[in-house]
Design a protein around this nucleic acid. Structure first.
Lengths: 184, 184, 184, 184
DNA sequence: TATGAATGAGCGTTCATTCAT
DNA sequence: TATGAATGAACGCTCATTCAT
C-alpha cells in the first residue's frame, strides 16, 4: 500500500518481467508481441519502455536476472558426500529436476529464442560437468567401478532434462539404479 | 525439361517446401517472413499462395509430409532380431540418430514452432515405445534380466536425441554398454 | 537564495524558455521533444506543464516574449539624424545585423516552425519599412537623389538578413557604398 | 491506360515524390507523417516502402532528383553576352527568380529540413559565383567600373531569393538599375 | 504459371500530456 | 513546487495476403 517510489518501481519491474516470462514462454519470443506482455501485466505498452529499452532487452534481462546457473552450481556443494554415491547422485539429479520444474517457463524461452541458445548450451555443459566430476571422485575412492564418466553424465543429465521438458517426470532413483545396479 | 503440367507443379511444390524448411529452421517460423521463403526459392511471394493457403499451412505441410514418424516405425522392422540384444539395440539407436541428423532442419522447426510441439511429443513417445517393446521382448526370451524397460527406453532415447540436438554426438555402443554391461 | 515564491517562479519560467529556445533552435520544433527541453533545463517533463500549457504554447511564448520586433523599432530612434545618410544607414543596418546575430537561436526557430512564419514576415516588412522611411526622409531633404526607396530598402534588408542567416557576414559600409556610391 | 508494368512503376514513383514534395513543403519534413504523404498520393502508407526505403530516403531522393542546381548552371550559358551588362544581368536574375518560383515547394523543404542545409548552401554559393563571375568579365572589358563583385553578387542574389521566398516579387530590372545606375 | 503492385492490420516504439504523490 | 509513473494516440515501418495482369 504505502510503497515508496523506488519500491513501487522495483515491484513494477519484477511484475513486468513476470508477465514477459509468462508470455514469452507461451508464445515464443518472436510470436509474442509487446502488447501481449503489456496486457498480461495489465499496463499499457508504453510503460514497458520506461523499464526496458526494447523487447530484446526484456529477453536479455530475463536470461541474466532470472537465469538459474548460479543455483545449479550451488547444488553440488549442498550434497552430503559422506553418503553412498547412488544416494548423492539421486539427490543431485532430483535437485536439478526440481530446478528445471521451478523454471519451466524460462526453459521454454531458452528453447524458443535464438539468442537464448548460448545460455542453454552453458547450462547443459555445466550440469554435465557437475555430474561427471562427482562420478570421477567416487571412482577415485574406489566406490564406483571405472567407466566412461562423460557419457554417464551426459546420459543422466539428458534423461532428466528431456523428461522434465516433455512433462513426463521420471523416478530418478530408478534411473540411477539402472546405470549403477550393483552399487545400489 | 519436357515436364508435364502436373509434374512441374509437383516439382515446384517440393521446391517451395525445401526452401520453407531451410528458412524456418534458420530463422524460426515466427522470425521468417514469407518473402524470405520466396527469395530462398527464387520465386515471388505471390506464387507461394498458389501452392499453400498460408504461411501456417506451409508449416503444417512440412510437419505432415516431411515428418519422419513413418520412417521411425520402419526402423524396428529392419533389424535382424537373430542377433544379440545389445547389437540390435545399438543399431536401432544409431539408425534413429542418423534419422535425426538427416532431419536436423525439421527438428529445428519442431523446436521453434508452437504448433509443432504436438508432433514432437508423438515422435518421442513413439520412439520410446519402440525401444521399450524391444527390451520387453528380450526379457521374455531371457536374454536380458528383468528391469524397468520404460525407464531404460526413455533414458536411451533421451540421451541420443539430446546429444544430437546439441551437436555433441556420442558413441552409442558405449551408451548401450553403460546400461547393459554384463550382457555385452 | 532567499527568493520569494513569485521571483522563483519567474526565474524558473525564464530558465525553461532559455532551454526551449536552445533546443528548438538546435533540433527544430518538431524534431525536439518535451523531454529534450526538460533535460536541457535539468527538470522533469512534468514541470514544464506547470508553466506552459503545451509544447506549442512554449513556441508561442518564445515568439511573443523573446521576439525582437520592439527592439527593431527602437533602432531607428537611436540614430543621430544630424549625420550624413550613408553613415546613419550603415549604423542602422549594423545594429539590425547585430540584433540578428544576438537572436540567432530565435531566428532558427522562426525558420523551422510553421507557426513562426507570420512573425517572420512581420519582422521583415517592419525592417524594410524602417529603412524605406529613412530613405524617403533624406530624399525629401535633398540629400539623396530620388530613387525607388522600397526596392532599395528591400535590397539592403534582404542582403543583411540572408548573409547573417547563412553565416557569411558582410561589410555593411561597403554594401551601402554599393547602392549610394556618389553620396559616400 | 494500357501502361506496362515498368511504366506504371515509374509513374507511381513520380506521383509519390510529387505528393511527398507537396506535403513536406507544407508541414515540414519532421511535421509531416508518412501517412500524410500516402493520403496526399491516395495510396496506403505501406506502398511508399516499395518505392523508398524510409521517409528520410524520400527527402534525399527529392533533394537529388528534384534539385535544380544543374539547371542553375545552365542559366549562365543561355545568356546572349553580346548585349549590355545590365540587360544580361537582368535576364540572368529573372531566370533565377523563375527557377525559384517554379521550385517553391522544394525551397520550402530546403528551409525546413536539417539535412537539406548542405544543398541549400551549395545553391547559394553557386548562384553568387555565377553572378560574381559575370560581373568580373564585364569589368575586364571595361563595361562596368571596378567594384566589389563578391558583395554585389551577394546583394543581388540575396535580394532576389529573399523576396521570392517571402512571396513579395520585385522588379528585377529596377534592382539592377539601383546597383548599376550609370551603366543602364 | 507467375508476377509484383497494392493493401490493411498490426508491429515495436516514441512522445505529449496527465496526475498521484 | 516538483517528480516521474503511467497513459493513449500516433509514429515509422513490416508483412501476410490479395489480385489484376
Amino acid at each position: 500500500m504505502a510503497r515508496t517510489r523506488s519500491e513501487q518501481a522495483a515491484w513494477r519491474r519484477e511484475q513486468l518481467l513476470d508477465a514477459a516470462l509468462r508470455v514469452f514462454a507461451d508464445k515464443g519470443v518472436d510470436g509474442a508481441t509487446v502488447k501481449d506482455v503489456a496486457q498480461a501485466a495489465e499496463v499499457t505498452p508504453g510503460l514497458l519502455y520506461r523499464y526496458f529499452d526494447s523487447k530484446e532487452a526484456m529477453v536479455e534481462t530475463l536470461l541474466s536476472e532470472r537465469g538459474f546457473l548460479p543455483r545449479l552450481r550451488e547444488l553440488r556443494a549442498e550434497q552430503d558426500d559422506s553418503r553412498p554415491a547412488p544416494e548423492v547422485l539421486t539427490e543431485l539429479l532430483e535437485a536439478f529436476d526440481r530446478l528445471l520444474a521451478d523454471n519451466a517457463e524460462l526453459m521454454a524461452v531458452f528453447f524458443s529464442s535464438a539468442q537464448a541458445r548460448g545460455p542453454l548450451a552453458t547450462l547443459v555443459s555445466e550440469g554435465q560437468r557437475l555430474i561427471g566430476d562427482f562420478l570421477l571422485e567416487r571412482i577415485d575412492t574406489g566406490e564406483l567401478r571405472p567407466h566412461d564418466t562423460v557419457m554417464a553424465a551426459r546420459t543422466l543429465f539428458a534423461t532428466v532434462a528431456v523428461n522434465r521438458r516433455l512433462g513426463t517426470p521420471i523416478d530418478i532413483a530408478a534411473l540411477v539404479g539402472l546405470l549403477f545396479p550393483e552399487e545400489g
